[in-house]
Design a protein around this nucleic acid. Structure first.
Length: 645
RNA sequence: CGGGGCGUAGCGCAGUCUGGUAGCGCACCUGGUUCGGGACCAGGGGGUCGGAGGUUCGAAUCCUCUCGCCCCGACCA
């Protein structure tokens, strides 16, 4: 049992102006953390209690599948040079020199150290598989720390590494982590989605990110759930696709070939569709960019990239960049439009764009690989490398008789049919999906939003075991390189995500329920007494610093004080993590503080005690109920048990 | 790294334009009244005005340099 009067809980009435996101304000105001420098935080007792609870859950689940280590944060340069990451990590790694001038770094992750242990100690296939983990401080010199504990330069990470004899072993280790992570995040009370991340070429065959939706997040994801709430589709917005709704193509007019139509001043999709009396999906939208070649020298000329999509669709520039091998797209200037497409803005179209790729190069390009992967094509024929890259979205594939700009002021074509009237360099999914569209697997509506990554599991392959020379003997006495996986969880991000989620839930119900009582005249006179703008929240019991706070509304009344002391002792004996607010403060102050520190359950001991009643405030359900003093312990126990399943 | 903003008491701010030796609210300490939603009265403590240099009789204020923090973007586990 802990007494508030003896604890260091420096709550703030006002949040420092530095704080932007909800969790940052709340962590400061509740006395969980204090900032020491950009992206560097001290954890005060309340924050540390919460972090410890999260760590305990992580450790409990990880011990079921692996063994805990503790590795040095201070690393000699050598092992990082061996893996190639000494240079690869660039400025993101903190580096230092010791008194002898030897180079060291503060580790960002621990593939190198773990692999060095593995190569020194593991000799036989009989020792595999191994899953090794640790919970430890990581250092990253982020270019831009921000959002409180969300993006920092020093943080706690649970990182795990698996060593297996073969790929099927790796699959198993990976799946074990997948299950462990789901258990961990569920026990922490988070609503999460697992997103396929497919982390590209770097030896990674499979990779999953665990995300929590929150406005404070930096990633954009799309996901859908089935009727019972299970996630059926989840993807980074950069990759997300959705089911295309079938479109009725227009009937051909005249001889069915492209027909020039005078469309004076009809430069927007809305104008054009109205003029022709068609739906935007029957029109071809043209979006023209200049972009650098992602694999080219910066002095190389910019590359024209033209995207054609359904009139009602939008370009996803990330997808476009990926497929076209470009970067830093910007809109074309009018001069560039004239040069590369041959028409003015508003009347751009795919027919007749000077685009003379050879058939041979087209074969390569149509294989679906990004252009930069096709080294031969564009490097060997420099002039080809400057041609306009025309990318057509899948939404135009197999369509007929579309309306499109004629690359001539005040004229459009109709009867434009892709494949017959123009040939794109590439046909690919370059469309930005929209909220509510149906996912490609279960045809359920997609939810779009910002999210924060709380965990990542990743099949590493042989990158480190090979470069650092780890090997074991297999059954036949042959040397084989173990295959590795790497798995991380951001401990502080679990706390942050929980606060953000809860605050968002409170904000949502507040704005719908009560008419906001914000009277500008009242607040103008009273700075501090004005509406408290700090968001409300409550932490899940599993990770809250205390499960319940007992608020004695007036400690000068001996009966209240005694009842509180007795109840706190009872709850404590029952194994409940209880905080007794025994401070000699006014009730209002104590209520506000209890809410500010996010404790999920509060027991008010006050007036009603005369009738043997106390109040239970359930901050998660946002209810207040009266209970007999005698039965509250049992009731609370069952509530807590239910919250932890 | 590019753009913007801010550094004055623990927190939130005013004072800077127009130079004259620092103020308000909250918090804190003492006494009293109050006591279920951030009380009130009286008294009190606390600030190298981010740092260095310069101009001036005199600098929080003007000039130069510098450090730090926040936001947007770029970049990135």
């Amino acid at each position: 049992m802990h007494r508030w009067s003896k604890l260091f809980i420096p709550t703030l009435r006002e949040a420092p102006t530095d704080a932007e996101v909800a969790s940052h304000k709340l962590l400061l105001r509740a006395g969980y953390v204090r900032q020491l420098g950009a992206g560097i935080y001290s954890y005060l007792p309340l924050g540390q209690r919460s972090i410890n609870k999260i760590i305990a859950i992580v450790r409990d689940e990880m011990d079921k599948i692996g063994q805990e280590f503790l590795l040095p944060a201070l690393n000699p340069a050598e092992i990082w040079q061996e893996s190639g990451r000494w240079t690869g990590m660039g400025d993101n790694m903190f580096r230092l020199k010791d008194r002898k001038g030897a180079e060291l770094c503060l580790a960002m992750t621990h593939e190198e150290v773990m692999t060095s242990i593995a190569r020194n100690e593991l000799r036989s296939y009989k020792q595999l598989p191994q899953i090794w983990y640790q919970i430890q401080t990581k250092f990253r010199d982020e270019p831009r720390p921000k959002s409180g504990l969300l993006r920092v330069r020093q943080f706690t990470m649970k990182d795990a590494y698996s060593f297996d004899i073969d790929e099927s072993g790796l699959d198993e280790s990976y799946n074990k982590h997948d299950r462990a992570y789901r258990a961990i995040f569920t026990r922490c009370g988070l609503e999460f989605v697992a997103v396929e991340a497919d982390s590209g070429a770097m030896g990674g065959s499979q990779s999953q990110e665990f995300m929590v939706y929150t406005e404070a997040g930096e990633d954009l994801i799309a996901s859908s759930r089935d009727a019972s709430g299970n996630v059926i589709y989840a993807a980074n917005l950069e990759k997300a696709t959705s089911t295309l709704t079938p479109i009725h193509d227009l009937a051909p007019t005249g001889d069915g070939l492209p027909e020039l139509v005078h469309t004076p001043g009809k430069a927007s999709i809305a104008d054009v569709t109205a003029f022709f009396g068609i739906h935007a999906s029957q029109d071809i939208k043209c979006v023209a960019f200049m972009g650098s070649r992602s694999a080219a020298a910066t002095t190389d000329p910019l590359r024209p990239v033209v995207a054609f999509l359904r009139g009602d669709h939008q370009v996803n520039e990330t997808k476009l960049n990926t497929i076209a091998g470009t970067a830093d797209l910007r809109p074309m200037t009018p001069e560039e439009l004239a040069l590369h497409i041959g028409g003015p803005a508003g009347f751009l179209g795919p027919v007749g764009i000077p685009q003379t790729m050879t058939q041979g190069s087209l074969n390569g390009l149509n294989s679906g690989k990004a252009l930069d992967k096709l080294k031969g094509v564009l490097r060997d024929i420099p002039s080809e490398g400057l041609r306009t890259i025309v990318v057509m979205d899948l939404g135009l594939q197999n369509r007929t008789n579309l309306v499109a700009g004629a690359n001539k002021l005040d004229f459009h074509f109709r009867n434009v049919t892709p494949g017959r009237d123009f040939t794109p360099t590439l046909t690919a999914d370059i469309r930005k999906i929209n909220e509510g569209e149906l996912d490609p697997i279960g045809n359920q509506p997609l939810r779009l939003g910002k999210a924060v990554e709380i965990g990542h599991i990743f099949k590493l392959g042989y990158k480190y075991s090979k470069s650092m020379g780890a090997s074991v003997l297999d059954k036949d006495g042959k040397e084989v390189t173990p295959i590795m996986g790497s798995y991380g969880i951001g401990i502080e991000r679990i706390l942050t995500a929980a606060i953000e989620s809860s605050a968002a839930r409170f904000a949502a119900t507040n704005s719908t329920n009560s008419g906001a009582p914000s009277s500008p005249t009242a607040s103008s006179s009273a700075k501090v007494g004005s509406q408290d703008t700090t968001p409300q929240y409550a932490l899940p019991p599993a990770i809250a610093p205390f499960e319940v706070v007992i608020t004695i509304t007036n400690v000068r009344e001996p009966a209240l004080l005694e009842a509180g002391e007795t109840l706190a002792a009872d709850l404590d004996r029952a194994g409940i993590d209880v905080l007794l607010d025994d401070r000699d403060e006014r009730a209002g102050v104590k209520f506000k503080d209890a809410e500010l520190i996010g404790i999920p359950y509060r027991i008010n001991i006050g007036k009603k005690l005369a009738e043997g009643q106390i109040e239970l405030v359930d901050r998660l359900l946002r209810t207040t109920t009266d209970h007999p003093l005698a039965s509250i312990a049992e009731h609370l126990k069952s509530l807590l048990a239910a919250s932890k399943q």
